[in-house]
Design a protein around this nucleic acid. Structure first.
Lengths: 157, 157
DNA sequence: CTTGACCTTCCCATGATGGGAACCCCCATC
DNA sequence: GATGGGGGTTCCCATCATGGGAAGGTCAAG
């Protein structure tokens, strides 16, 4: 095997994308079919490694495979308008911010509840009391402190 | 059917847990098997609704079904030490904070990149340049600090 | 030639959720 | 009594990206 051609395992080691994932990316069309040896082994060259590192980096930034498909197409198109790339990035930022706000709401509510819970061997527990509170219908809570009510927790800041 | 017994659809409407999910919770053991009519319809009473609302609220706070199993057991045990509940809540808080930090790292990186990208019809694009940067070799991701170390990056809601 | 590391494909599981098919049941209305 | 509609039942499939593992072929070193 010539010096600049690697097996899938080597490519995986050098790019941080597992061999399993490389095959899956190929199967689903994110990557074009790899070159094969006579015995059927996949072979990867420098350009392939470059693409794999691109994918890995994009995954690390939370992009979905669908978004990466678009990013790769733009990357390969040397005449692309950067506006297209920026739009994808901004969608991703919006999505990340939305998810962060959601988790933040949950975390804050739980922190309030945990603060109010002694955490000793007595059974009184504001956390369970909150979970069990039956009157969580319409907008009205009597839990002191103005915690996240349903709807705020899931939705916004 | 006596007045205080509801079908699964009614129970779903009154608790915010979908009928599908109620069946699934039962199938996986989070809920005990529901009472059945002669024709095989599931029946739910007030206590069941209470439990379902408990589950719904816990899901809204991001608890996994596994954690909810534990919380339900503690809820039903009137002699439980609140320390057990608090410990579960704190694990959840830790997990939420970790996920938030991960997403926050991605968002900040992307925001920097997007800020540096003109987003016009010219092809120059710092976002693609970053994704394509080849100097991000295997074992050394210099992002070590706060970012996406692979894992629950995409943990959805 | 054997051994062991590596490759191939294929199937299965994850977690929580929804969609939909095929079929049964109940009640009200004609 | 027949019929229709709405809702129940079970079962299978899809998501999204990932890993685990089995069965079998390949390659290089000893």
């Amino acid at each position: 095997m010539s010096a600049d051609v690697l097996t899938i395992g080597e490519a995986a080691r050098r790019t941080g994308v597992s061999a399993k994932m490389i095959r899956w990316y190929e199967a689903t069309g994110l990557l074009p079919p790899a070159a094969r040896s006579e015995a059927g082994y996949r072979h990867y060259g420098e350009a392939d490694l470059h693409t794999l590192r691109f994918i890995r980096r994009a995954r690390d930034l939370g992009f979905s495979v669908g978004a990466i498909t678009d990013l790769l197409a733009l990357w390969r198109d040397r005449a692309r308008p950067s506006a297209g790339v920026k739009a994808i990035a901004q969608e991703q930022i919006t999505d990340l911010r939305r998810r962060i706000a959601e988790l933040e709401g949950m975390a804050r509510t739980l922190e309030h509840l945990a603060d109010a819970c002694c955490g000793d061997d007595r059974p009184e527990c504001p956390i369970l009391d909150d979970l069990a509170a039956a009157d969580r219908g319409p907008a009205r809570r009597r839990l002191a402190g103005g915690f996240a009510r349903r709807g705020l927790v899931r939705g916004g800041t």
